[in-house]
Structure formats: C-alpha cells, structure tokens
Write a protein that binds this DNA or RNA. Structure first.
Lengths: 123, 123
DNA sequence: ATTATGCATTACAGTATATAATACAAAGGA
DNA sequence: TCCTTTGTATTATATACTGTAATGCATAAT
C-alpha cells in the first residue's frame, strides 16, 4: 500500500492516513484478515510520528474497520459491522452539490460515482 | 435559510457555514443574484462572531460561489465559474468507499447519490 | 528472559479556531 | 454635508487541536 501525505493540507495527518486505509479496504488492496503494518513500522516508513499513526489506528478500530491485538498487531476486520455515520451522508451531499454547481450534468455525476465505486472491484 | 451549527464538531464553524450555503445554492434555496444576509446580520442571528462569518464569505467569494460589493453586500454568483477541487474528488471517493464498506449495494449507493442530486431540483 | 506489540502518559511547540474591540473606505440615504 | 451600512482589515486573547518526542507498561509469542 502506497501512502502519500499532504503536509500542507488542513486535513490532519492521522485523518489522511485513516482515509487512505479505508479506501484501500474498499478497493480490495487490503483484505479482511490481512495484517496491517505495525504502528512503529508504518511510522518509520512514512516519516510521521508513532502517536500519529496510533491515532489513526484507534480511529479505525473504533469505527470497526480493523481489529487490534496487543501481540499480533492490527488486522482488517472481516465483518461489515461498519455503520454509516452522519458525517458521511453530510459530506456526500456536500460534494454532490459542489459537482452540480460546477456545471456537471446529472448523468456525468452518477457515472463518476459509479466509476469510483467500481474501483473497488479488483481493478 | 435555516442555519444549524454543531459546536462540538471538528469541522470549523466557518466551514460549516460555507457548506450550508453551497448546499442551499445547489438546492435552489438561494438563487443567482439573490442577496445573502449581511455579515453582521448573519452573525447576530446565528450567534457566531462576525469575523467567523466573514471567513465563510471570503471563502465562498474566492471559490466563485458569491460576489461581494462593499455597499450592496453579498449576492449569489450567476455563472458557473466554479471549478471542481481536488478535495471534492477525494472526499467523494472516500465517502463512496465508506458506504460500500457499510454493506450497501452498488445500486443503493447510486440511488442515494441520485436522490441527493435531485434535492436540488426545486423541491 | 527477550522481544515486539498496542497503548498510555507527559511535555512541548506550532497552528488553527473563535471571539472581541476597533477602525477604515465606499456608497447610498437623510 | 452628515450619517449609516457595507465588507474588510487589524490587533489581541483564549482555547483547542495537531504533531512530535521520550518513556514506560502489560501482554504474549519466541
């Protein structure tokens, strides 16, 4: 998994990391049961602090995306116990509104959404 | 236009205000050429600081959603000079990924997106 | 025993956020 | 002309968040 960070973004690093992992799971680049890098390894590899990575892992764990074991590290959760948050819906509505105001046609927006979804099908 | 703010959210107030105005424009609740409340009026009405409202207006102006006149206040921009930002695309991908991981079917997700889009058609 | 793991704690510096008070230039109304 | 309203700018302050750093702990496999 290739991780990229935008240090000038207003989105915190731990959130950027969390988001990339969520997308990676949805895209099948990380599969249920698969082990994630250890906090220390990911921190060193990415050049960001261990606690920052830990924050992302705690968030993913709390959301049900991963499970952690004090000994075996973190693994991708198997079930679909993830519930849709209120923020997810709000953000989706916002982004579709932005696309609409940019002049995109309805069909084009829906095609875009479909494409983004399909990227999770073992591309 | 009814404005609501979540003071416990990690999303800044000025961003919450900006988002609500963008959605209102997309939904046709604010039409091109229509006047927005003055900064002072909106601040007092919402109970948030004038400068916080000003930040939201400056952001909307910079993005091309509104135009401001030192005398006549702020009005909704007419043209579709708004361009899609990189963040918009990233967020859209993220939220669709989250919906997918929640177990929602592709058709349901696309239906949801369509519904959110259609809410801009003079509901 | 040793080691690696997630996790916790404490401290620190930097940045962002929100508020507050004050003021300014522009433009319309009285 | 004088006053008011407008967006905008400045300065200051308090608070919270973010990221880093160092250190340690309980757990469990080796």
């Amino acid at each position: 998994m290739i991780l990229t960070f935008d240090f000038s973004s207003h989105v915190p690093l731990y959130m950027q990391l969390r988001n990339q992992i969520v997308i990676a799971i949805a895209q099948g680049k990380l599969n249920p049961g698969e082990k994630l890098p250890t906090i220390r390894a990911l921190a060193e590899e990415s050049g960001i602090n261990m606690m920052t990575v830990s924050k992302a892992y705690q968030m993913l764990k709390q959301e049900g995306y991963i499970v952690t074991d004090r000994r075996h590290g973190a693994t991708v959760a198997s079930g679909k116990s993830v519930s849709v948050s209120e923020e997810t819906m709000k953000e989706l509505k916002l982004r579709i509104s932005e696309l609409r105001l940019s002049g995109m046609k309805k069909e084009d927006i829906l095609s875009l959404c479909e494409t983004l979804y399909d990227q999770g099908d073992n591309v």
